[in-house]
Design a protein around this nucleic acid. Structure first.
Length: 296
DNA sequence: AACGTTGCCAACCGCCCTATA
DNA sequence: CTATAGGGCGGTTGGCAACGT
């Protein structure tokens, strides 16, 4: 037995909304408020599905919606939030006043994703040259510095997840949608943002790329080799991996903490030996002492 | 000018969760 | 405990405009 459709498709208008319909909906909501979306069209005299009315209101007609192009600040916020939350558009939208989840999702899919994919490819090129030991001598200081910071950033994200695991009350739901946002708004997130801001980093995190790639069934994976071995990033995917559930940042961090060897899944690659070396090599005040602990 | 292609975005679809009777 | 309504969410689609040939 299937679920009842949200509304009877017969006699229901679909497609683009006319200005007249918009006006009717706005008038009705102004007078009566919203809620009871299923019965709203009947009461308002609209030949629309209630769901369609709700979407039209929340995505377009709501008075607090900001229209027009995204500002660079909004772009940065979206990228950073997406790196923490993944495709949880509603959660991202809740942190960007005046923008709807639909708008952010569209913006991401049509602009940012392409741009970041381009960046990612550039980064991969740079990474392969940075991480190739035989070329180590020929790296420019800026490239090397970039590599150090990218490593630091990867670890910072894992650390955020680890700290959040430790801070999380037992009663908190695993699916608590505001969970990362709370961390993001905490001092932990603040220090993370400062580091990013300082270096103008605004690219998708490798970790979130990882979970996104898993979700989309794409091929880039990171695998963790047997304990203590140095491994590299991998661009292959096994049939087992294809069927794997995507792993959250938290789960990723949990693996790091427990050392659990879901071994076919992760190869820490540049975030293991090489990144430790890079980080320990990093000049300046860093708060990456926890890595020393991890490294034993 | 005509046609095909591409990109954008509003709207839709189906699944899921929660509240309530 | 179960069924159902209400609503939220993320992924996908379709129509339109801009652009290229």
């Amino acid at each position: 037995m299937g679920r009842k459709p949200c509304c009877d498709k017969h006699g229901v208008k679909r497609g683009a909304w006319t200005p007249e319909e918009d006006e009717i909906l706005i008038d009705y909501i102004k007078k009566n408020g919203h809620g009871r979306w299923r019965s709203l069209p009947k009461h308002a005299g609209l030949l629309r599905c209630g769901k369609s009315c709700r979407l039209r209101w929340t995505n377009y007609l709501r008075p607090d919606i900001k229209r027009g192009p995204f500002t660079p600040e909004e772009e940065t916020a979206i990228i950073q939030l997406h790196s923490m939350l993944g495709n949880r558009w509603a959660a991202i939208a809740s942190k960007i006043p005046g923008r709807t989840d639909n708008e952010i999702k569209n913006f991401w899919n049509t602009h940012l994703k392409k741009r970041l994919l381009g960046n990612h490819q550039n980064q991969q090129t740079q990474w392969s040259s940075v991480l190739e030991p035989s070329n180590a001598q020929s790296k420019s200081p800026s490239t090397r510095h970039m590599a150090q910071w990218e490593s630091a950033r990867v670890e910072a994200e894992a650390r955020l997840s680890m700290e959040s695991l430790l801070l999380r009350p037992a009663s908190m739901s695993k699916n608590d949608s505001d969970y990362f946002l709370r961390i993001w708004n905490s001092e932990v997130g603040d220090s993370f943002r400062k580091k990013n801001g300082q270096y103008g980093v605004a690219c998708q995190s490798p970790i979130s790329s990882l979970s996104t790639k898993f979700r989309s069934g794409s091929s880039l994976t990171m695998q963790r080799g047997p304990a203590g071995t140095s491994t590299s990033t991998s661009t292959t995917i096994t049939s087992k991996q294809k069927n794997m559930e995507p792993k959250s940042h938290t789960a990723y961090a949990q693996d790091m903490m427990t050392g659990s060897d879901d071994s076919s899944s992760y190869e820490l690659g540049y975030s293991s030996d090489i990144s430790f070396r890079l980080l320990l090599d990093f000049q300046g005040d860093n708060d990456m002492g926890f890595l020393q602990g991890l490294a034993g």
